[in-house]
Design a protein around this nucleic acid. Structure first.
Lengths: 115, 115
DNA sequence: CTAACGTACAACCTTGTGGTTGTAGATCAG
DNA sequence: CTGATCTACAACCACAAGGTTGTACGTTAG
């Protein structure tokens, strides 16, 4: 986990990358086990170039990384970025909980409010 | 939490909605406390119509809901959808952990491998 | 060497996104 | 009623997204 605090633009890229079913499926596969780009491409009903583009989007978002091995390019998942995204969602939930807490406080502070 | 299992298209919309800093900011605000559309719009340097569109995107993704109150439209955050998205990311992490587990197993099964 | 494979990248097309302005309908204050 | 406010929505524009095909180049197999 080298960087796990993401700036706004990075967050943009991460969520945009996850907003496509093919790309989520690629992430699923490479999180479960690394794979070459061509091996990934065989799973989908689209051109190799299209899959290549999807991988590039994921790479730019740092959700995956590539490493050349011979003539193949091996794709690997980056769990650190996933964690950073999950933490951001957790922040939303935190705000929500805090708000509910404030509402409870208000109700507690005005016990005779029901006229 | 009425629906908290999302289909592929819904997940697409949720992540696409979160892939914009303005929309994430709106979610932040309405998670912390409900607000009218016009009140939200005053926070940003763009037209009211643009903010209205952002809210519509969030609504379509079920990250927020609107309720009319007099002439105002009150926007509220929907933590259930946020949780569903967080759970999906958790699934990726789960796969990753399982893979690491398998690698450990392999290493454990071949202890004298280091020649 | 030659052929096949894996990859990279450019050009192109269609559709969606994020912004604008403009118009119009409800609702509330005075 | 009148005017201000809040909202809805259509039309338009620039540009990015997601797909295609075609070409080129390095690497491995025979």
């Amino acid at each position: 986990m080298v960087v796990d605090q993401l700036d706004q633009q990075s967050v943009d890229r991460v969520f945009a990358a996850l907003a496509d079913a093919t790309r989520r499926d690629i992430v699923t596969r490479v999180m479960a086990g690394e794979s070459s780009v061509s091996a990934l491409a065989r799973n989908y009903e689209m051109s190799f170039a299209a899959v290549q583009k999807h991988v590039a989007v994921l790479e730019r978002a740092r959700l995956v990384s590539k490493e050349r091995r011979g003539r193949e390019q091996i794709v690997r998942g980056d769990v650190g970025t996933v964690r950073a995204a999950a933490r951001l969602l957790g922040g939303f939930e935190e705000l929500w909980r805090a708000r509910i807490g404030r509402i409870d406080d208000l109700l507690a502070a005005a016990p005779g409010d029901a006229r």
